[in-house]
Simulated scan of single mutants.
Amino acid sequence: MPLTYKGIMETGQMLVRVDTTAKRRVKSALVQKAREIQAKAVRMAPRDVSNLEKAIKVRGEGSMLRDDAGRFTRAEVEIYIDETVPVPERPGKMVGDYAYEIHTHLTPAGTMQLGPKSRAKQDGQTEVVGGGFMERAVAEIDGAIDAALAEALASIF
């Protein structure tokens, strides 16, 4: 007695759609959280040294990488300091010339003290301005990332 299978192709196509939809929604959630981290890091970054706030950027918002078969292979979203941003009041200097020093050694991450513009910025907000701003921004948003990813996947299944 022969066996007949129906719906195998439809099931395969459905699984591919679920896979593609899941990856797209997860990527969207990652980009949204990266933008939140970027905004938080900008609010926490010191202001006395020009253009540091403008140098905090997000990379990876475009399409996901695909393999030779056209399948999505991975999605990367990165929050970083663009060290090539120029410092207008210091010709020939870039943000990268001082970003590490400020991030590592400025209070609360180190012993260097805030300058007048950073103190004024601090007076106008609840976020702590100063060193370690990238790690502190990630730490504040970190718990919400897992929840956002779980929500993105829950809406599919």
Rank of each mutant, 00 (worst) to 15 (best):
G110R: 03
A152T: 00
I8A: 13
K121Q: 06
Q113Y: 06
E10W: 02
R25W: 04
D19C: 05
G96Q: 02
R25A: 12
D48H: 07
A144F: 03
S118T: 08
I37A: 03
R136G: 08
T111N: 13
V42Y: 01
L30G: 04
I141W: 00
D19E: 13
M14P: 01
R71Q: 15
E127C: 02
Y98I: 09
A152R: 01
A41V: 01
I145L: 06
R17C: 07
F72S: 03
D67E: 12
P108L: 05
V138T: 09
E151R: 14
Q38G: 09
G60K: 03
L114A: 08
M1D: 08
E135K: 15
L153A: 02
R24Y: 04
R66D: 07
V85C: 06
T73C: 05
D48R: 09
A75K: 04
V18W: 11
E53D: 14
S63V: 07
E78D: 10
Y5M: 10
T107W: 11
A120Y: 06
V129Q: 01
I141G: 01
R59W: 00
A152M: 06
I8Y: 06
G115R: 01
K54M: 08
Q125T: 06
V95E: 06
I156L: 09
E83T: 15
K54P: 06
G115T: 00
Q125P: 05
G92V: 09
V85E: 11
K6R: 04
K6N: 10
A39T: 13
M1Y: 08
L65S: 15
G96T: 06
S63E: 13
R74M: 11
M14T: 11
V16G: 00
I56K: 03
P2H: 07
A154N: 14
R17M: 11
T73P: 08
T11P: 00
K54V: 04
G62M: 04
D142Q: 14
M112R: 08
K6G: 06
D123T: 12
A45L: 01
Q32V: 10
P46E: 11
A22D: 00
A22L: 06
A120E: 14
A99H: 02
P88N: 12
A120G: 12
Y98G: 05
T21S: 14
G130F: 00
F157P: 14
T107G: 02
G92L: 09
A152H: 01
V58G: 03
V58C: 05
Y100P: 02
M44S: 10
L52R: 02
T21V: 11
E10Y: 03
M1W: 11
T84G: 10
S155M: 14
L3M: 12
R90S: 10
K6D: 08
I156E: 07
L65T: 15
V128R: 05
F72D: 07
Y100K: 12
K54A: 15
D68K: 14
R25F: 05
R25Y: 05
L3Y: 13
A144W: 01
T104C: 05
P108H: 03
V128D: 04
R24L: 12
K27L: 09
T20Q: 14
G132T: 02
M94E: 12
L149E: 04
D68I: 09
D146A: 13
H103V: 06
T73N: 10
A69Q: 08
E135S: 15
Q32H: 12
Q125D: 03
R35Q: 12
